[in-house]
Design a protein around this nucleic acid. Structure first.
Length: 548
DNA sequence: TTAGGGTTAG
């Protein structure tokens, strides 16, 4: 394809913007590299295809360097098949081509593909290249695939890669992300020269597992070793403590950053905001968000999706809309996390049609998107819509169904009194999808059976539970007994509830009203006496509404 | 090639 061929012609818009065509004399490998990197950063598939065609024409597409860049470009655009085609064109003797593919997949979030290609490499190459190991371990961490992570560790040991700092840090991270902090520590302790990345991976591992003392002690040790904690060290502490519910400690560490001359970045602020939201400190979250803006920092999609649940929690749709507008203004509204959080926020605030409109507009939906919408319908009494959406989700991609999807659809069945459907879904969840029922599912099923008056079946289900029933399970049974006047089972449920919740008066009052309904005044008096003796008082319920 | 932030539950 000659550049001159286009001279004087009216080109389609995409081609008019194509810098290759307008600047033919800069067409050096370095120029193409920069162009590919720009297209990868902006995920521009169409110009990328044109450029690839051009490189094929001029015979440069098989250069290992440019081909590796093209693989990264296609992976960034989500074009796995194209990435693979470019990989297949690189001469098979070139060992680095494996890294080009595995590394690109891992960087772009195609974790399972990265692992699959690694095993393919293992089958085809006698000695693996250690440079791919960190990328594959990263994939295992993100997928919570400890089994594969351990197999990779075995490969590391077989080929004596354990002395590589990159490999060790990646192992520490993989074990930490899979909840095996003690294994991470073993790898860390074995390292002869501990660098900042390994230390940060270990600090993060401790902090994310609630081991605040160990994390802080390691930071002190780091300083004794002459390593200065960097922004990532500080952010690991802030985020770890926030996630483990110690938002006050996270905030203290965050404030210490200023004292220590570290400039908190958007990650630091987002971690603090997220900590406040998860610990129901919504006003503090909003206040911190405002402070962050006043410091001149621009929020990211992570910040926005962290903050939206705070609006949902207090059904503050006005603030939710403001944040929605903000997301549009900064160009992150199309992010799937942001949109899922928006769907949830609108649904929880009662704006179910806005939630639906947004949901329908989304071309990319993840499990949370579907679950939020199904919960939204179920909680607003649109049970048929919830069930219909569940069926649609199952048809489109049944791998996306998780335990919360079934919670959502079972809630819909419960509200609509659809016992048979609820029972069949409870069965389907286990047999077809291999999802082990949790306490919440049992509570839902007991509620479903109880509301339909099937009290014996509900009690049989409780007795067959493989774990100890909790407040919600017994509470559902007691509520059903109240509705159907079953005193014997109500007494059983109330007894368990008083053991689980000894200071609560509500359950005894429910039982008392059941006795009263049946004219059992002696029992009413006995219960009242017991409550007075134990100083049990019903706390008044509270609710609020937003005034226009 | 390795280390830090995000959405759904009764």
């Amino acid at each position: 394809m000659s550049m001159r061929r286009f001279k004087g012609q009216v080109l389609p818009a995409a081609r008019q913007n194509n810098p290759i065509i307008h600047r033919p004399f800069q067409s050096t490998p370095d120029y193409y590299t920069k162009l590919i990197e720009t297209y990868a950063r902006d995920r521009e598939l169409h110009p990328a295809r044109l450029l690839h065609a051009h490189l094929i024409t001029i015979g440069s597409a098989r250069s290992t360097h440019l081909a590796s860049k093209l693989i990264a470009l296609y992976a960034a655009c989500g074009q796995i098949a194209h990435a693979r085609k470019v990989f297949d064109k690189i001469p098979q003797t070139n060992i680095r081509r494996w890294f080009a593919l595995i590394g690109a997949y891992a960087r772009c979030g195609f974790y399972q593909q990265a692992i699959d290609v690694f095993w393919e490499m293992q089958r085809k190459v006698s000695r693996p290249n250690k440079i791919v190991i960190p990328s594959v371990l990263k994939a295992c961490g993100h997928l919570s695939d400890l089994k594969t992570g351990k197999k990779i560790h075995a490969v590391v040991l077989r080929f004596s890669f354990e002395f590589d700092a990159f490999v060790s840090s990646a192992l520490i991270d993989m074990y930490s992300k899979n909840g095996r902090v003690e294994k991470a520590q073993q790898v860390f302790d074995m390292m002869v020269e501990k660098d900042l990345v390994a230390l940060n991976a270990m600090v993060s591992g401790f902090a994310q597992h609630g081991l605040a003392r160990e994390a802080l002690r390691l930071v002190e040790k780091m300083q004794l070793l002459g390593l200065k904690p960097n922004l990532i060290t500080w952010n690991s502490l802030v985020s770890g403590f926030s996630q483990k519910g110690d938002e006050a400690l996270a905030y203290r560490i965050f404030n210490l950053m200023w004292v220590n001359g570290i400039e908190p970045d958007v990650v630091s602020w987002t971690s603090v905001i997220s900590g406040f939201v998860h610990n129901f400190q919504n006003n503090k979250a909003f206040h911190t968000f405002k402070q962050m803006l006043s410091h001149g920092l621009c929020p990211t999609s992570n910040t926005i999706s962290s903050l939206l649940p705070a609006c949902a929690a207090v059904t503050d749709v006005k603030r939710g809309k403001e944040i929605h507008a903000y997301a549009l203004a900064i160009g992150v509204e199309e992010d799937v996390y942001v949109r899922s959080a928006l769907v949830d926020m609108y649904a929880k605030c009662g704006f179910i049609y806005d939630a639906k409109a947004l949901f329908c507009k989304m071309s990319q939906k993840n499990t949370v998107t579907w679950n939020s919408m199904i919960f939204g319908y179920a909680n607003h009494g649109y049970c048929n819509e919830a069930i219909e959406l569940f069926n649609q989700m199952k048809m489109e991609d049944d791998k996306k169904l998780d335990y919360l999807t079934f919670m959502a659809v079972l809630t819909a069945c419960c509200h609509a009194g659809m016992i048979e459907l609820g029972e069949s879904l409870f069965y389907l969840m286990q047999e077809r999808h291999g999802i082990v029922p949790r306490l919440e599912h049992y509570a839902c099923m007991v509620d479903l059976l109880g509301r339909a008056g099937k009290l014996t079946e509900a009690y049989d289900m409780i007795k067959a539970m493989p774990m100890e029933p909790d407040l919600f399970v017994w509470g559902a049974l007691l509520g059903a007994c109240r509705n159907y006047g079953n005193i014997d089972l109500a007494e059983v449920a109330a007894k368990h509830l008083s053991e689980l919740e000894p200071e609560s008066a509500g359950n005894n009052l429910l039982l008392s009203s059941l006795y009263a309904d049946s004219g059992s005044w002696g029992n009413v008096a006995r219960l009242k006496k017991m409550m007075m003796k134990n100083k049990l008082r019903k706390l008044p319920g509270r609710s609020w509404m937003e005034a226009a």
